[in-house]
Design a protein around this nucleic acid. Structure first.
Lengths: 327, 327
DNA sequence: GTGAAAGCGCTAACAA
DNA sequence: TTGTTAGCGCTTTCAC
């Protein structure tokens, strides 16, 4: 019942445990013939090295964590799932194991010492970061920057994303561009908000108070806010929404007011999620390659684990506007 | 630099390592005062038990894996992410760690012996199951059943889901109900397909060849197939789609033909994913509680790990129709 | 209630 | 190239 150990293989193949160990972890350090004998014995016994014992002896686990820091949100969020995907792919390719969790769950359980690094996605709280670092765990932030800490952060190019969207709108003849801002993490919210203001100035359409609306992250709230925006005097001819779900709310509002899209109103979303092509009209959106973000996070993590003291502090992932029929 | 060990705590608190160990894993077996001394010393040293050493000594890891078995798909798939969510929540609550991977990635790396159980979501290949079981790893299947094996499977009630959808359509006066079938995993495809045929008979509307269309899983393929379906003579007044994305394709097709929804055509999707409320009109869909599926998977897993030889072989999760304005 | 000590299965000097 | 052996940090009898 109990699994075969390195001793069993050693005995059966007639070599020492050290050699068996080497045959598996440093194959070229054992002679071809010996190696074969070892593998044969291992196969016969159905042996596989115990990763736990290995971790114990080597004092490292080859294990990383992906922790989603977003109140109420999880792996179900397409954006964070995308990052996770990138992290996972690369982690698996490097023979790292990836455990996932949410910030909430993580706090509850002292599962420390089992991971060598953690990639925190989203609104990472300072105390979590501090706690991890106190445990000698390497930390990388995704889609967030935390001023007080010296660690690598991977974010999307918000400035450029918003600018591309607004330039596109201006070029297609829009002059009264409004923004529908959602209440996201403080970092994203303020970045995108400020990016909007500065991009507007940059394209020569100074934003007015009147053209800004806030809403929650659900579609009903977005629809309501959009209706309100569209009913204002001097209503906008284009709305830039903070993400695609909000943009879907805008589309609903427009339809309710019998506006023609994109003739009467252009709509641009953000994230370029899967819903863009499902909507009618298909939604123009700023494409963020979250998988690449995940991969870059892993690159930074790798550097950290390799002992590089100062990998790039900030990594900015380029974004691109994906134009569809809503604008 | 190196982390404090149980020996450090033992020394500082003046008790044996055995007592320190007990203080952490079986608190009530040590006297209140002793325990306090231990905790104090531990806190002073910033000590936390090493899970690896623990696993080594106890011969168990408290670690499970969630493996997504779907060609090309991943955690990005909302359905599988939902199951993952349920599994993760419960796993974390039980102090299990959850590592995630895809079937592809898993095959490539012999990370065996580190997990005690694996939850395979989707189209689990027999050889993967066999391999895992050979390694004494407990296996539970989610959204799939594999005839050759004796293991717990958790699936949604396809029969009931389809029947509810069709009954609803009939009750709202539809008589010519068509099905848009996607090419999913063999299990889901055949289950849903057969459920459709039998449900149609059950509600007294024997299905005709003419009212069935197949398509790939992307929206373009769905739109095309739906157009074709709607252009047939004696075209349907209702379409039941295999999932919400396909249903979105149907809506697109309907719009292209200037059909009024739901007057000219009723549309029903499956899974009740987030897109349902984003679409126009909002999509009626069969709600599957995938989070609950994940939780049930964990329950089965727990039973297996506890040594129960035969937990329920098949667990069927109830589903319910969520009626919205597309029907 | 507490302590002593023998493992758990592997790795990595060091020696041969 | 291969073997010997002392750990890695904790758990768990078995005594006391």
């Amino acid at each position: 019942m109990s699994n075969p150990t390195i001793y069993d293989v050693s005995r059966l193949s007639g070599v020492s445990t050290a050699t068996v160990s080497r045959a598996f972890s440093e194959p070229d350090r054992v002679r071809e013939a010996t190696r074969r004998r070892v593998y044969q014995a291992a196969a016969a016994l159905n042996y596989q090295p115990s990763a736990i014992a290995r971790a114990m002896a080597r004092q490292r686990t080859d294990r990383l964590a992906y922790i989603i820091c977003k109140k109420g949100a999880t792996i179900l969020d397409e954006f964070y799932a995308g990052i996770c995907e990138g992290v996972m792919r690369r982690a698996n390719a490097m023979e790292y194991q990836l455990v996932i969790s949410t910030a909430e769950d993580w706090r509850r359980t002292p599962k420390s010492k089992q991971i060598e690094g953690a990639i925190l996605a989203g609104d990472a709280q300072p105390d979590l970061i501090a706690e991890l670092q106190r445990q000698n765990i390497k930390v990388v932030l995704a889609n967030h920057v935390s001023p007080g800490f010296d660690l690598p952060c991977v974010v999307a190019d918000e400035q450029s994303g918003v600018l591309q969207a607004l330039e596109h709108l201006k070029q297609s003849g829009r002059h009264n561009i409004a923004m529908l801002a959602g209440r996201f993490s403080s970092y994203i919210t303020s970045e995108r908000y400020n990016a909007f203001l500065s991009a507007m100035r940059q394209i020569g359409l100074p934003p007015e108070e009147a053209s800004i609306a806030m809403c929650d992250r659900d579609i009903h709230s977005a629809t309501k806010a959009a209706l309100e925006l569209l009913n204002r005097p001097n209503h906008p001819d284009a709305i830039f929404a903070f993400n695609d779900t909000l943009a879907a709310g805008v589309i609903k509002a427009a339809r309710r007011l019998s506006l023609q899209l994109p003739e009467d109103l252009a709509v641009v979303g953000y994230d370029d999620s899967t819903i863009c092509t499902l909507l009618e009209p298909e939604l123009t959106s700023v494409h963020v390659d979250c998988r690449q973000m995940g991969e870059l996070c892993m690159d930074r993590m790798t550097a950290l684990l390799a002992g590089e003291s100062c990998p790039p502090r900030l990594t900015v992932v380029p974004v691109s506007l994906c134009v569809r029929s809503s604008s």
